[in-house]
Amino acid sequence: MTWVDIWKEEFMLRAMLATALSGVACSLVGVLVVTMRLSFIGVCISHAAFAGALVGLHFGISPLSSALVGSLLAVGVLGPLADRGNLSPDTAIGVVFSASIALAFLLLALLPGPKSEALSWLWGNVLTVTSDNLRVLGYVAGGIVMLTALFFKEIQAVIFHRELASASGLPATAIFYGVLVCSGAAITASLSAIGGLLVFSMVINPAATAYQLTYNLRNLFVLSAVFAVMAGWIGLALSVLFNLPSGAMIVLISTAGLLIAITLSPKRTGGKS
């Protein structure tokens, strides 16, 4: 099979679809998380989701559902802390973060037999995404695109200043928790494709790249999604051509994109809008 033929294979089309869907879902919540300064909460959510997936494997529950529960637990603990805003959530984030990792490693050690399935949640593999997972990714990506479009103006007001948005009569708290729950969903759905260790860069990198280049929120969402899908496909192609791990390649490509954007950024030099 030559590398031209490989693109005609069904598993390859599925991998491309999975990359694109997870890229769109993660990059949109990435814009929200980056502009609302919630990056660290996002990191915690992704590790809690990973720990949740291992809990599922351990007890024979669907890892996808238990990962979602894990991420929502992190949202439930950290959301109110960041929400109150009057005490620094750093400590709580550190505690949740390390506890998730510790739990994940403990379960990894306790799992009987070969650990390849558990490890696949750590590294991820876009080439082995199941149909079920693909369907979930589709729903999550579609849902996030729709919610972002429908509540665009409220989201923009909350990004600008949460208390001010609240004071003007907007449901700022609902938007805030909505963003956190969407982050949990996007991360969970992408977990098996990208892996628990790497999924968070799918969230941050494209958004941070776009953030260097525009002051317009609408463009920020669009650019971020475009970068995510591009990085995803280029990384996927390289991983197939050179037989390298796909998640790692995707993340490295998106990191390279971010570095290029930082050197070209008009914002870095204080340039005009």
Partner: peptide
């Protein structure tokens, strides 16, 4: 409000800020 300390990179233009005052309505 009292001084807001908005990050200069925030993707919100002055126009958007004025429109936001009307969003709830």
């Amino acid at each position: 409000p009292q001084m807001l300390n908005i990050d200069p990179r925030t993707p919100v233009r002055a126009w958007d800020v004025v429109m936001m005052g009307q969003y709830a309505r």
